[in-house]
Amino acid sequence: MRPAIIECDRLSVDLGGVRVVDGVTLRVGEGDFLALVGPNGGGKTTLLRVLLGLERFSAGRVKVFGGLPGSSPGRIGYVPQRLFFDREFPISVRDLVLMGRLSKKKLFQHYNRLDRERVDEAVGMVGLERLIERRIGDLSGGELQRALIARALAGEPELLLLDEPTASIDPQMKASIYDLIEQLKERLTIVLVTHDTALIGRYVTKVATLNVSLELYEPNSTAGSQSLAGVAAQNPVFPNL
């Protein structure tokens, strides 16, 4: 069995007195690509936030890289939903991606040449070289999403957590972002929160549906992964699919 990156054991989370995640047991091994699907309000983002150490859990146990959530920031790349910050902020793509190096730096330490090289590599990986000096407010939705992925990659993570990276992006852009994620799965462990069950089926190694409680679909062989999309698509918790 591959070494565990994420281990949740009967994990429960309450937000404002409401149980949003209930008794989730989940194991993500090194090199896994887990798609987390489920209805809005089903607790997907909350689960990610717990793994990042941003949200407290009320029962159960969680380990990330064998330690408490939030204790190994340098090994995790996080791509948040892009609607959460000010698009008018005066910052270029380069400086945005540079922020991905934060977890590798000490307090008071300024960015150096190595950091800038990693930024150039990450920006190249997502294909934004031409736009590196552009202000983020002048990017399209898909370009901004790529910039956010580049920010996560610049920190050279071992685990990548993506929260609905394709929400409100046109279908063509979606496909190109999934192509990008597919390339990344060769070297990273990935947890992807998404609604696009039809698109992800051929990429992932595991699918979990989260609607307060969690159900895991894990194929025994790679051939089995072909049917994962079918499992998710036929699941009654997705009336919109």
Partner: peptide, 22 residues
């Protein structure tokens, strides 16, 4: 000057700054 990268990070996206260990 000393904290320019930290101040930029918390101004832009406080949550990401927290995830990065700040």
């Amino acid at each position: 000057w000393i904290l320019s990268k930290e101040f930029l990070a918390i101004s832009f996206d406080e949550e990401y700054a927290a995830v990065s260990g700040l």
